[in-house]
């Protein structure tokens, strides 16, 4: 089932959490709401779920207005950030809850409940823990129980609030992949909130980048990473080197860097920011095209990528990532002056 959000606005006191947001989630997609703390992503998710009431705007499910529909009747599955498992119930009882509280007429027979819950626990690979209490489970297991519980009511939409937020790094990795596979299997329209760009890029079909209550960009992971629409998206998705400066007469003067900028040939001078990711910078011992000289301060050779920290003429930090081969070919020493050439600079004019 598709989700459409139209012009949603939500304020808490004087703080505008969600500011005129519109977006569409097509049926069967897995969409990430990505943004820093305070960007309004959780509020938006709770509004879609019906847990929060928007001040303005509409939420449509499959084209049908659900704005006024009570949370109980929206047909959403919600996975809470801290799981919100019922701690006095076993895993089995937690998953069965949504079926057992149905009005008598629509309540499945206990045998049906049993089969269904068992199947779901198998799906999340926890059938062997059915009789345990939440307190006896690990974080990752609780997460999966929360997911099974949300799926038990056969939601038309699955909403997850920071699903991996309180797990440690390794479990997080595993669960991410597992969620991706699970979604491929069950194909229920899903939205999850995260502040971790890596997570958003790895798991989702599409990413909605939010900042200060507004949507900055919506696109596939490749889109938002390769073609960021705003400086915020550029900066939020991965490491960047930022160069402040101006564009004027078809050239951009950005700190130590001066590059052609034909898009801005005829306009008056304007402030601008240039961005280059660390792996988009090449290092050499002599001048090679538009670039600048910098001094190598520190090398972190651990890993497949070698991370180098340099300082330009005005002591500003420049981060470079080189492949091991590139590094071995150059073998730079700390303190050495190197010429830095960006293969690509993204320029945003103010």
């Amino acid at each position: 089932m598709s989700i459409e959000v139209r012009n949603i606005t939500k304020s808490f006191g004087s703080f505008t959490a969600v500011n005129d947001v519109s977006l569409t989630v097509p049926t069967g997609e897995l969409v990430a709401l990505l943004g820093p703390s305070g960007s309004g992503k959780t509020s938006l998710l709770r509004i879609i779920a019906g847990l929060e009431k928007a001040d303005r705007g509409q939420v449509l499910f499959e084209g049908e207005d659900a704005t006024a529909r009570d949370v109980r009747h929206r047909g959403v599955g919600f996975v809470f950030q801290h799981y919100a498992l019922f701690r006095h119930m076993t895993v089995f009882e937690n998953v069965a809850f949504g079926l057992r509280v149905r009005p008598r007429a629509r309540r499945p027979a206990e045998s049906v409940v049993r089969t269904k819950v068992t199947d779901l626990l198998k799906l999340v690979q926890l059938d062997w823990l059915a009789d345990r209490y939440p307190s006896q489970l690990s974080g990752g297991q609780r997460q999966r129980v929360a997911l099974a519980r949300a799926l038990a009511v056969e939601p038309r939409v699955l909403l997850l609030d920071e699903p991996f937020g309180s797990l440690d790094a390794k479990v997080r990795q595993e669960l991410r992949r597992w969620l991706r596979r699970l979604h491929d299997e069950i194909r229920v329209t899903s939205v999850f909130v995260t502040h971790d760009q890596e997570e958003a890029l790895e798991v989702s079909d599409r990413v909605v980048v939010m900042n200060q209550g507004r949507v900055e960009q919506i696109g596939t992971p490749a889109d938002v990473f390769e073609r960021p629409a705003t400086p915020f998206v550029m900066g939020f998705l991965g490491n960047v080197n930022m160069f402040h400066g101006r564009v004027e007469g078809g050239r951009a003067h950005l700190g130590p860097l001066s590059v052609d900028y034909p898009e801005h040939a005829d306009l008056s001078p304007r402030d601008a920011q240039g961005f280059a990711r660390p792996y988009e910078l090449d290092l050499a011992r002599e001048e090679a095209g538009p670039g600048f000289w910098a001094t190598l301060r520190h090398v972190n050779p651990a890993g497949a990528i070698v991370k180098l920290e340099l300082e330009d003429g005005e002591k500003r930090l420049v981060q470079v990532e080189a492949t091991r081969e590139q590094f071995e070919a150059l073998k730079p020493a700390a303190g050495e002056r190197l010429y830095v050439t960006p293969r690509q600079v993204r320029i945003f004019v103010a």
């Binding site: 847990l51 959403v76 919100a84 019922f86 006095h88 119930m89 949504g98 509280v101 949300a150």
Partner: peptide, 25 residues
Amino acid sequence: TEEEEAARVLGASGWQMFRRVTLPN
């Protein structure tokens, strides 16, 4: 309020939520 909210999302009525989630806690 998370557990109660969870019960609501899962379709529990007010009384069901109170008796099965709030009261045991």
